[in-house]
Amino acid sequence: MSEKQLLQVRKQKRLQVFLFFAAMLALSVWSAISTGFSFSGLFTGTVDSTKFIIFDLFPPDFSYIASLVEPALETIYMSFVAMVIGAIVAAFLAIFASATTAPHPIVQVAVRAFSSLFRNIPVLIWTILLAAAYGLGTLVGTIALIMVSTGALTRAFAEILEEIDMGQVEAVRATGASYGQVLAQGVLPQFLPGFFGWSLYMLEINIRASTIIGMVGGGGLGFVIQTQIKLFQYEQVSMAVLLTLVLVLIMEWITNQIRERII
């Protein structure tokens, strides 16, 4: 009897898996047909792209590096300023957005919805909107990056706060500590490692995102990339891309060093 049941369950599960894959296949075929996708197109596309990368993008124009220093520094400044401001704002918002520390459930829902606006409307759209109001340049780039950082970090920080050990908090409360003291002595020590870890990670993300933001008017390396593409200066484009890569790698290395020491 139970073996029969087991067989039945297994059969059912297999059917579920089969249906899932069938659905995915149908979805893909439908998507392929309506977007006019074809494998021969994929093949020629890949070949053309590879050709383009090899013949037009290579070799990067290293003589161009001197004029890239300024925008590269801009990218770093913007990313860092946005990370700091974003982390501070997000830490404040997270207190209201996490179930453990929020003063009221309605506040929690409101703050979560607010921060999800920053997360779910892509940064590019925010930047386009902002550029219309503030004009082009690093100001727009920084504000857009602050939005990205705030959105992502609020969610991350709130999750950290929800996972802290409430026993430790309870113990500090039991000594007769005030609300501020409980936050500082009971919550903060548990929150700090995650706070620093995520903020550092955000710095990396900001540097990557700043290229995109730059393309629609946010200054920095992204702006150079966009301009040079329009001018068909592909070897200078690849130099700028390469420099972005180097920046990201350096940031990754530095943040890893710091992370290892503080956690």
Binding site: D165, G167, Q168, E170, A171, V172, R173, A174, T175, G176, Q185, G186, P189, Q190, L192, P193
Partner: peptide, 16 residues
């Protein structure tokens, strides 16, 4: 509260 000490099953020290 400050005149009432408490110890816990899980110790509840601030671990860090």
């Amino acid at each position: 509260r400050r005149e009432i000490g408490m110890i816990f099953q899980g110790f509840n020290l601030i671990e860090r």
